[in-house]
Amino acid sequence: MEKTGSNRTNNQVLSTEDFLEIGGHRLQSRFILGSGKYSPNLIEAAVHQGGAEMVTVAVRRANTKDSENIMNYIPDGVILLPNTSGARDAREAVRIARLARELGCGDFIKIEIMKDSKYLLPDNAETVKATEVLAQEGFVVMPYMYPDLYIARDLVSAGAATIMPLAAPIGSNRGLVTGEFIQILVEEIDLPVIVDAGIGSPSQACEAMEMGCAAVMANTAIATAGHIATMASAFGKAIAAGRQAYLSGLGRVLQRGACASDPLTGFLYND
């Protein structure tokens, strides 16, 4: 079971069988890599150094220069997660999802519906509608959403495979701005919670994993880094470390005072 919460056991910590299952695929890596805004030549190195097994892509009108097609740059064996970016309502998202499936790389779809290009916030209500239609059509639906508990429950009822709450506005690299609300989803929603959008650094990705998120999706943090493949590597390690910390069970936090780590007996000055 993906969600372990407070009933996790040491067996899971020690087990090598920790994987993320989505749509019948078992992912060892919990790092979902975006492919936007950097040279497609760098995708393969980023995938390999980051250890990503799933890569997101978008659907757009084709030009006829096939040499530029992104599919020429995605390594074999990677699971493609197309998004519905550009959709302004559920109807457009469904249309894009069907085209994505026709492109022949599986049934995964990340629903993104935005009416606003300034903040790029997802339209939660339209996202629920699109999730319902696409889940019924057999898609593995991974909706991008604003972290709202009631909408998350509606997405579960609509047949979502995961939920993908935003940490901060898309492309902002501002980190876990909505962290407390994502934590509520982790506690209450019995689906993998994958943080999507806003994660800007490996430490933020690690923290999301320590909170119990199932995976982290990152694009801009990698695309705007000084060295793309090395940053992907740092993300991969941070995400794995945060997962391990979560499974281990973080140590408790004292609200006040201190607690010695050393024995409080046998001091040299004692008589």
């Binding site: 009108r61 970016s85 492309g171 694009n219 801009t220």
Partner: peptide, 29 residues
Amino acid sequence: EVIVPKAAYGQTKLLRGDRLEVVCFVGGG
């Protein structure tokens, strides 16, 4: 607004006023 399966391209006659969308994957997040 209706997907044409690849196997049907040959039989799909283009008519005046048709609207085609030809799409592909591109980099995205």
